[in-house]
C-alpha cells in the first residue's frame, strides 16, 4: 500500500490504482496510516527539483505573479477608488525579468505574454524593445518570449495605439486576424475588436504597410493622416483622409463620439465605464456627437439626456435608455 500511496502523491497512479486507494482510505482506521505517509513523503521531497512536467507551469505562475504585482503597485499609487469609474489606469509592465529566466533555461521553447486592459481601463505598456502601446478598454495584446530578439510580432484583439521604436533590421508587425500591419518606426492606431465588422488602422506619422496573412499579393502603404478601413465580410479596403487625433485621442482619456448611432455609443460607453446598458429598439440609430474627457458616467448620461429626446432609468445594474415622448413631441413640432 505504501508504494501505491507514493505513486498517488507523485501523480502517477492509474485510475484503477486510485480506485483501490479510495476503497482502502474509506476505512477510517487507514486514514492515520495515510496521513503519516503523507507527512513522510512531504519531508522526503524537501529540496528536490520540481516534479517532472511542472517546470513550465511554475515559470508561468512566476510570470503572472510578476505582472500582477506591478499592476497592483500602480493601482495603489494613483487611484482614488471613488472615481475609479472615470479614472484611467496606467501601468507599465516590465516582462524582461521573466522572459530572461526562461530564455536562459529553455532555449527552444516558445511561450507568450499577454497584456490586457479590462473594461473601464486604458493601459500603457512598454514592450521589451522599448515601443510603447496604449491598450484601449477591453483589448489585449500578446507576444512571445523571443520578442525583440528575433521578432517584433504582436497579436492584437481590440484597439491599441502604438509608438514603435525604430529598428530597421527587425520590423514590427501587428497581427489582428485578417490584416497585418508592418512597420519600422512610427505612430499609429489599430482597432480590431473581434465582434466588429471592420478592422481600422489610422496612421499618425511614419509609414506602415498593410498585409494580409491569407492573400500574399495584397499590400498597401498607408500615408500619414490616412485611415484604412478593412471590411471583413467582403475583404474590401477603404482609404480615407482623416483628422487622426479623433482616432487616437482615446489614449489620453478623450473619447470622441462623432455622429454615431446609439448602438455604437453604448458599445463605447460599456467598454469605457464597465457599465451595462440597454436601449429601446426605436432609439438604436439615434445619432450622437459629443466628447468625453474624464467626466463621470452620470454626468455623461445627463448630457445625453439633454441633447436627445431620451431619458434613463436604472434597473438593477443596467442603465436603460428610453424615448422621452414629451421631448420628442416638442422636437417634432
Amino acid at each position: 500500500m505504501k508504494e501505491l500511496i507514493e505513486k498517488y502523491f507523485e501523480g502517477s497512479a492509474s485510475a484503477s490504482e486510485q480506485m483501490q486507494l479510495l476503497k482502502w482510505i474509506r476505512k477510517k482506521e487507514n486514514r492515520i496510516v495515510f496521513n503519516s505517509s503523507r507527512l513522510g513523503w512531504n519531508k522526503s521531497q524537501l529540496n528536490k527539483p520540481l516534479p517532472e512536467g511542472s517546470e513550465q507551469s511554475w515559470l508561468n505562475i512566476q510570470d503572472q505573479m510578476l505582472q500582477k504585482s506591478f499592476k497592483r503597485w500602480q493601482y495603489s499609487d494613483k487611484v482614488n477608488l471613488m472615481v475609479r469609474i472615470a479614472a484611467i489606469f496606467f501601468f507599465v509592465l516590465s516582462l524582461g525579468g521573466g522572459a530572461y529566466i526562461v530564455s536562459n533555461t529553455k532555449k527552444n521553447e516558445i511561450w507568450y505574454s499577454e497584456i490586457e486592459a479590462e473594461n473601464g481601463q486604458i493601459s500603457k505598456v512598454k514592450l521589451p524593445d522599448g515601443s510603447m502601446v496604449w491598450l484601449n478598454s477591453g483589448s489585449k495584446i500578446s507576444y512571445n518570449n523571443l520578442f525583440a530578439e528575433n521578432n517584433r510580432d504582436v497579436e492584437l484583439e481590440g484597439e491599441a495605439y502604438f509608438e514603435v521604436q525604430t529598428n530597421e533590421d527587425l520590423s514590427f508587425v501587428v497581427n489582428s486576424g485578417e490584416i497585418q500591419v508592418k512597420v519600422h518606426g512610427t505612430k499609429f492606431n489599430v482597432e480590431a475588436y473581434p465582434g466588429s465588422e471592420n478592422i481600422e488602422v489610422v496612421l499618425e506619422s511614419g509609414k506602415v504597410q498593410l498585409l494580409s496573412p491569407d492573400v500574399s499579393s495584397f499590400q498597401y502603404f498607408l500615408s500619414p493622416g490616412e485611415r484604412a478601413s478593412f471590411v471583413k465580410s467582403n475583404n474590401q479596403l477603404n482609404i480615407s483622409e482623416v483628422n487622426t487625433s479623433k482616432y487616437t485621442s482615446w489614449k489620453d482619456g478623450i473619447l470622441n463620439i462623432y455622429n454615431q448611432p446609439l448602438v455604437e455609443v453604448v458599445k463605447r460607453l460599456e467598454k469605457r465605464y464597465n457599465q451595462e446598458f440597454e436601449y429601446a429598439e426605436e432609439l438604436k440609430d439615434f445619432p450622437f456627437t459629443f466628447t468625453i474627457k474624464n467626466e463621470p458616467l452620470d454626468e455623461i448620461i445627463r448630457i445625453m439626456e439633454k441633447i436627445a429626446p431620451i431619458k434613463t432609468k436604472q434597473e438593477k445594474n443596467v442603465i436603460v435608455f428610453e424615448l422621452d415622448k414629451e421631448k420628442a413631441r416638442e422636437l417634432s413640432r
Binding site: A13, Q45, K48, S54
Partner: peptide, 14 residues
C-alpha cells in the same frame, strides 16, 4: 510557496 507547489501540483492535476 514553491514547496507547496512542488508537493501538491501532481495531485491537484490528477
Amino acid at each position: 510557496f514553491k514547496d507547496v507547489f512542488r508537493l501538491l501540483y501532481p495531485r491537484l492535476k490528477g
